[in-house]
């Protein structure tokens, strides 16, 4: 079994370990888990989820700072 998989991260195809979880990806990309959500194939993903071959990953910043009401 191949130890590496290809996933599309923000439109860019990258090769990662098949044991990469969403939480690992956030850490590797330097994104803060408190302020970033991860969408995998268009759906929010839990941190424990392992990525699979061909997954499409997007990051959503949840910090808006536009309230002050």
């Amino acid at each position: 079994m191949n130890a590496m998989i290809q996933v599309e991260i923000e439109g860019q195809v990258l090769t990662v370990s098949r044991f990469t979880r969403v939480a690992d990806l956030l850490r590797e990309m330097g994104l803060h888990p408190e302020s970033t959500l991860v969408l995998v194939n268009g759906r929010p993903a839990p941190e424990r989820m392992y990525l699979s071959q061909g997954d499409r990953v997007k990051f959503v910043k949840v910090t808006v700072h536009f309230q002050g009401v």
Binding site: L39, K61, F66
Partner: peptide
């Protein structure tokens, strides 16, 4: 905030996700 964001995405509520550039 992140839980509210996840639920908004899950429910498909029309909403803008973005950071105000003036912040």
């Amino acid at each position: 905030e992140r839980d509210a964001a996840a639920l908004t995405l899950y429910l498909g509520i029309p909403a803008h996700f973005g950071k105000c550039p003036l912040t």
